[in-house]
Simulated scan of single mutants.
Amino acid sequence: MSEYAIVAPEDFDQSAFRLIGKDWMLVTAKNSEGKINTMTASWGGFGVMWGKDVALSVIRPQRYTKEFIDNSDTFSLSFYDEAFKKDLTYLGSVSGRTEDKISKTRLTPTDANGIPYFEEAKIVLMCKKLFCQPMDPEGFIGDAKALDAQWYADKDYHTLYVAEIEQILVKQD
C-alpha cells in the first residue's frame, strides 16, 4: 500500500478548480453488503459550512453510485495523475449496475476506516455526509435560468451532498 500523509484542510493547498474541473475525481462509496461503486465527477467544490470543512458533490438520480451514497454515511473523493485519465473516462461512461467496471481498470480498491478509495489516488478526501437535497429548478435566478434548459433537458436534477471532510490523505513521493 502507498504511503500517505494526513493533511489538515487548512493546509491543503490544491486548487478545487483544477482538481475537480480539469483533473476530475472519483466519488466512491460502499453499500451495506460491502460492495463498492465509483463514478467520475467533474462538478463540486470545497469550502466551509456550519463551522466545518466540507466538500460539495452533486449526483444525478440515475447514477448507480447515488444508491451507494444514499445508503452510506461516508464516501471518498479521490484524485489521480494524468496517467489514469483513461481509467476515469471509463469509470464515468459505464455503469457498475451492469458490469464490474472497477475490475476493468488499473485501480486497486482499498479503504481507511471503512471508507473505500483506490491505492493509486494521489489525493483522497474522506467525507461524512451532513446534508443532501435534490436541486430545485425554481432555484435558478435571472439569466441563470438558461442553465436549466442547458444542463437538465431530461429534468434529471442532481442531488446536492454537503459532506464534512474528516481526513485528507496526500500520497508521498
Rank of each mutant, 00 (worst) to 15 (best):
F75V: 05
Q172M: 07
G114F: 11
P9Y: 01
A55I: 13
I36F: 03
L147I: 05
E99Q: 09
E3P: 00
M126W: 03
I123K: 00
A8W: 03
G21N: 14
Y4T: 07
T38I: 00
C132G: 08
Q167A: 06
A83S: 03
H158I: 05
E82A: 11
E120A: 14
F68I: 03
A112C: 06
F118D: 07
P61C: 13
D111P: 09
N113F: 13
H158R: 14
A83N: 06
A16F: 08
A163K: 14
K129H: 03
A29Y: 10
N113L: 07
P134C: 06
W24A: 14
C132T: 12
K66Y: 13
G44A: 15
Q167V: 00
E3L: 12
I115N: 08
F131W: 08
R60L: 11
K145Y: 01
E119Y: 03
V162E: 05
D100R: 10
P109G: 00
V170P: 00
R97D: 12
F79I: 07
Q150T: 06
E67R: 04
L26S: 02
E99T: 03
L125Y: 04
I168E: 09
D173Y: 02
G114P: 12
K22G: 09
M39E: 08
M1D: 15
M135F: 14
D111N: 09
K85W: 07
L88I: 07
E120D: 12
E164I: 01
C132V: 03
K145P: 01
K85A: 13
S42C: 13
H158S: 01
